[in-house]
C-alpha cells in the first residue's frame, strides 16, 4: 500500500502497512424491504483498499446493501463491522454517493456549496467552515477537474458533471470507504473513463471502494473483486472466478443469454436515459 495522498485526512494512516484484518466485515446481513427479504444472509469481507464491483439484476438489493451500510435502512439480522486502519482517525468512515435521480437539482446551491456539505460531518453542529475545510473542498474540486465550475449552480451542469460534484463531495468527506451507487448509469463514455481513472487513484491511496453496476465488462476489467448479488450473495471473489456461466445464470436467471463466449443481459426498460 502506498503512502497516503493529499486526501488522507487528519491522523491518516500514511504509509502504514496493511493488515490482514478486513476493512468491512459483513456477517449474515439481512435486510427487509416491507415483508420481502431484500438481503438474505449476506456475508462478505472487503480488505483495506479493496475495490469491489457489486453486480446483479435490477432489484437485487445492490442499493439496499449500500443503504444498510450507511445506516439508512435498518439491519434485521447479522452484523456489519467497519474497521478503521487507524483507530485514532476521527470517525468519518463511509461516504455514499447515491443515484443521481434521488436529488432535486433545481435547488439553489452552487457546486462549491454542495462539495462543502461533505465537510459538515466533521464540522459538527453550529460551526462554520474554516480555511482548512475550504482547502479540502478546493482539492476535491481539482481532483475531479471541476474547479472551474465551483461558482455555478448545480442545476446548470450536465449529468456527468453533476456526478463529479457528488464524487468531489464524497472525497471532501475524507472517507475510508466509498460507496458509489450505479455511477456508470446515464453518463457518457468520457465521464465513465474519468471515473475509472479516479478509482485507480483511490486505489493508490488505499481507500476501500464498493461500486454497484450493471456493467460486467467494467467490473471484470477494472475491479479486484466482484460480488454477484441477487438478494443473497451468489458469488464473491476475483472476476474470473465469479463470472462463470453457472454464477451468472444463478444471479440473472432468464435475463442472461450466452452467446459464443460472451454474455448478454437482457435489461430492457431500465430507465438508463438521463432525465
Amino acid at each position: 500500500m502506498s503512502a497516503g495522498g493529499p486526501h488522507q485526512g487528519d491522523g491518516g494512516p500514511a504509509g502504514r502497512p496493511h493488515h490482514a484484518a478486513a476493512c468491512l466485515d459483513l456477517r449474515d446481513v439481512t435486510v427487509l424491504y416491507g415483508h420481502r427479504l431484500a438481503l438474505d444472509h449476506v456475508t462478505l469481507a472487503v480488505p483495506h483498499g479493496g475495490q469491489v464491483a457489486v453486480v446483479g439484476p435490477n432489484g437485487a438489493g445492490k442499493s439496499t446493501l449500500f443503504k444498510a451500510l450507511v445506516g439508512l435502512l435498518p439491519v434485521r439480522g447479522g452484523s456489519i463491522e467497519l474497521r478503521d486502519r487507524d483507530p485514532q482517525a476521527r470517525a468519518q468512515p463511509i461516504a455514499y454517493v447515491p443515484q443521481r435521480e434521488e436529488i432535486d437539482w433545481s435547488f439553489p446551491v452552487t457546486v462549491q456549496d454542495v462539495v462543502m456539505m461533505g465537510r459538515y460531518g466533521r464540522l459538527g453542529w453550529l460551526r462554520r467552515p474554516q480555511a482548512a475545510d475550504r482547502e479540502v473542498v478546493a482539492r476535491s474540486l481539482e481532483e475531479l477537474a471541476i474547479a472551474d465550475l465551483a461558482a455555478r449552480p448545480v442545476g446548470d451542469l450536465s449529468g456527468g458533471q453533476q456526478q463529479r460534484v457528488f464524487l468531489a463531495r464524497a472525497l471532501a468527506q475524507e472517507p475510508h470507504v466509498l460507496l458509489l451507487d450505479e455511477p456508470f448509469t446515464g453518463v457518457d463514455v468520457g465521464a465513465r473513463e474519468a471515473l475509472l481513472d479516479l478509482l485507480d487513484r483511490l486505489r493508490d491511496r488505499g481507500i476501500t471502494v464498493l461500486v454497484s453496476t450493471h456493467d460486467m465488462e467494467a467490473a471484470s476489467r477494472r475491479f479486484d473483486l466482484v460480488a454477484l448479488l441477487n438478494h443473497r450473495l451468489v458469488a464473491y471473489g476475483r472476476p474470473a472466478e465469479v463470472f462463470t456461466k453457472e454464477h451468472i445464470s444463478a444471479a440473472f436467471g432468464g435475463q442472461a443469454l450466452f452467446l459464443e463466449g460472451m454474455v448478454v443481459i437482457d435489461q430492457c426498460c431500465e430507465g438508463d436515459e438521463p432525465r
Binding site: V70, G71, Y96, E102, I103, D104, V114, Y120
Partner: peptide
C-alpha cells in the same frame, strides 16, 4: 442563522444529512 448549514443540508440532501448523523 445558527442552523443554516444543517437546514441547507437536510433540505438539499436528507440522505447525506442522515449519513452524517444530522
Amino acid at each position: 442563522f445558527l442552523l443554516y448549514k444543517e437546514f441547507l443540508l437536510a433540505s438539499f440532501d436528507p440522505v447525506l444529512a442522515h449519513t452524517l448523523g444530522r
